[in-house]
Design a protein around this nucleic acid. Structure first.
Lengths: 258, 258
DNA sequence: TCATCTTTGTGCACGCGTTCACAAAGACAT
DNA sequence: ATGTCTTTGTGAACGCGTGCACAAAGATGA
């Protein structure tokens, strides 16, 4: 099917909106699930529901790819999986290094999402000499001294930073100097990078704070009657030393009291 | 200094743009750092640089809070820390449950970001009976059977899902039924929730795929399709990680509202 | 008191993203 | 072949977020 494609939109690739790019992985996931169930085609309506978005938005997104749906029928699942994978650059193998093998780093190393689609953990790097050689997720941890070496030998262009905040910028600088041009930052810090380097950040505490904002607003709107949460939360609050203390959110937390 | 604050705008709380809310935690972090260094006041320019945003944007953001800067001087650090904390609802203590204590769940439980500002891990929950009673981050893991019990007893309104994708929706349904109205989802699935429940998702594989897209585009721009080879060519600026000073702009926050 | 200087707060314009609504395109049945 | 029915692709309008640029506000000094 879809053999006689005269030519692809090609030049269109340039202008894919950022918001659309951010949704492509979502579509890809839904499509992959359909593919595994051997569903041949899917309508924008169905796929949109599966991806949790608006169908008009989905169609517009696909239109940027030079979408190839069939009116009256829908989209060919396999074909779309291929197109999106290609567009996202997942048809090639991306070696990735993870720096900072603490709890989070180890969790990331073990995360299946890495290996599943186009990504390969090329190395795990940690500053602690005691970690060197220790296997995590089947890969021996290497010392930070090897960083530049590893990046170059493996042609790594994507790095994941899971170090404490205090070390993040320094690690970032070294990664960039060694040739990394895309960074996924889990450390709660603002990273400064030269032009041409992409940084995306994942920050748990920020996400929680945003939720807290909305949660508070809900409680206020409802006159504090909705969930039996607000009332309880206020009354309760055991011990906890003068929480006036805002720890340096950067350093590895010494497990909380309680 | 800046003591005679007469009254606050109060009613303004309603109309804070979502984009602004998402940046408040960023400002708060920068301000907290300043506070620890006992810096009394800060200008929008300085604070913006520390938070990695545009100064005009920052001023506009603060204006939604009914900002209280002093022209010709800047903002009072302590006062602003308090205002933002209050706006985000961090002056109260939010009990949080983490469901799914695998690698990621354990990492989250150990993460200092939780305890540092207004959040308290009320319980760790896992479906594996073998995990029950086992201490993680100083807290004994409880079995899923206790979920509803825990939520109610502790007045929990925020839940974190770190289970495998397959279990996420079911866990989500139970959390919501028990009274949770805000969910932070780490499972790679689209969660369906009733109106009034907020869901924010953190998805590693999506973040990586977005990076891969840009990485591929960089490589393509350079002419060849050599993944890391071309990348290195672009980043051949040797050393000098000193100060390339460039706003980390051009990239959007990691997660957007579902 | 007045002039000058710094920095905030915001009106305005612009661009991006979302959504609606519908014409065009194709499948399918007769 | 022709008509009907389904679903795509997109033009257009709208709303939100961003950044510029400047007037207003207050500090500071003479």
């Amino acid at each position: 099917m879809a053999t006689g494609r005269t030519h692809r939109p090609a030049t269109r690739s340039r202008g894919i909106p950022e918001a659309t790019v951010a949704r492509l992985p979502l579509y890809l996931r839904a499509l992959t699930a359909l593919s595994e169930r051997s569903v041949p085609t899917v309508s924008s309506e169905e796929l949109a529901a599966a991806a949790g978005v608006n169908s008009a938005k989905l169609r517009k997104d696909f239109s940027y790819l030079g979408s190839y749906g069939t009116r009256g029928v829908g989209y060919d699942v396999e074909y779309l999986v291929y197109q999106i994978s290609r567009e996202l650059g997942l048809t090639q193998d991306w070696p990735v290094v993870i720096v900072g093998i603490g709890n989070l780093g180890a969790a990331l190393a073990n995360y299946g999402g890495f290996a599943s689609r186009g990504f390969r953990v090329a190395a795990l790097i940690d500053a602690d000499p005691a970690m060197a050689g220790k296997p995590v997720a089947g890969i021996a941890v290497q010392h930070t001294d090897e960083l530049e070496h590893i990046i170059e030998d493996n042609g790594v262009s994507i790095g994941v930073i899971a170090t404490p905040a205090g070390a993040a910028q320094q690690v970032c600088d070294r990664l960039v100097a060694a040739g990394v041009t895309s960074i996924l930052n889990f450390a709660p810090t603002v990273l400064t990078v030269p032009d041409g380097v992409d940084v995306r950040k994942v920050d748990l505490s920020i996400e929680l704070q945003i939720l807290a904002f909305h949660e508070q607003r809900k409680a206020g709107d409802e006159g504090a009657v909705a969930p039996a949460a607000a009332a309880r939360a206020a009354a309760d609050t055991p011990a906890a030393p003068a929480d006036d203390r805002k720890g340096p959110d950067g350093d590895v937390p010494a497990v909380m009291p309680a």
